[in-house]
């Protein structure tokens, strides 16, 4: 456990200056700020629609979720899984990492947990900033009645589901980035997977849940269909199974890995 904690601490220390780390903070900050700015500057048009507070919140949150859930989140996960492993490939530091008196499981698990934590930070910030900026809009413009409805329950459910749905993609991309050091393979496979996932969901393919890249899109689509109440649905179970199986597979790759 001690080895895992110090490995995790080291991951944070060495990655704190990388784009993958800052993107987990800047993506929610930028996207939420942009949507909030759009709501602020286009307030007359939006207020003319006379939305009820729940519908107003859904419009506001939906503007963020629509872009984030099906595009930004999967891309971020693909890029971040690449970055967490590439830091060792690029600097040729696998050899020094595995020459430390730490068990290989801790080194591997710390990298994986770090990647999971970055997704958590990113989604938590999306959740917190959506809530905070919505209320800020109400303060800046009294016409908005954001204070008359609390979207806390909806937000926490949808972001929990998005978080869980992203673990499947993360695990696939993590293994790909662990094996290959180049940029094109993980990004290329991720991009193709993502397109396939979106097509499978939008075409209503019944086996879409077997494609990890489709899980986030399925969560977003479920929101639109009004069935977001449940947290554990088929795609979430599929994502968790993918995550567990591939996490273990990744560990076996690591212990068999020879640093030539």
């Amino acid at each position: 456990m001690h080895a895992l904690l110090i490995s995790l601490q080291s991951e944070f220390y060495k990655s704190r200056k990388t784009l993958a780390f800052w993107a987990s903070i800047l993506l929610p900050l930028c996207l939420c700020s942009l949507v909030t700015a759009a709501f602020y500057f286009k307030s007359e048009k939006i207020l003319a629609q006379l939305y009820s507070p729940p519908v107003l919140w859904m419009n506001y949150i939906g503007s963020i979720l629509g872009i984030m859930g099906s595009l930004i989140l999967p891309f971020y996960v693909i890029f971040m899984a690449f970055s967490v492993n590439n830091i060792e490939h690029k600097n040729d530091t696998w050899k020094s990492l595995f020459a430390q008196p730490l068990n290989k499981f801790s080194i591997y698990a710390a990298k994986y947990i770090y990647a999971v934590l970055l997704i958590f930070i990113c989604l938590f910030l999306f959740f917190a900033l959506s809530l905070a900026f919505g209320n800020l809009l109400h303060i800046l413009n009294n016409g908005y009645k954001f204070n008359d409805y609390s979207p806390l329950d909806f937000l926490s459910r949808i972001y929990t589901r998005l978080f869980l749905s992203s673990l499947g993609i993360l695990s696939v991309q993590f293994i790909i980035s662990l094996i290959w050091s180049d940029f094109l393979k993980p990004m290329g496979i991720g991009f193709i997977g993502l397109i396939a996932g979106i097509i499978a969901v939008t075409r209503g393919w019944e086996y879409a849940c077997f494609i990890p890249y489709s899980h986030a899109t399925m969560v977003i689509s479920a929101r639109k269909e009004g069935v977001a109440g449940q947290i554990f649905t088929q795609e979430i179970y599929a994502s968790l199974i993918y995550a567990a199986v591939l996490f273990l597979a990744g560990y076996f790759i690591v212990i068999k890995k020879s640093v030539k």
């Binding site: 220390y13 050899k95 020459a99 430390q100």
Partner: peptide, 28 residues
């Protein structure tokens, strides 16, 4: 064992001092 193998394995985006601090973290 303390080792230096081939080209030194160094994190290029960190300073020399930060590289050493990172190793301190790993070694306790």
């Amino acid at each position: 064992i303390g080792a230096l193998v081939e080209q030194p394995a160094i994190y290029a985006h960190l300073t020399g001092k930060e590289n050493l601090i990172n190793r301190c973290i790993l070694l306790g």
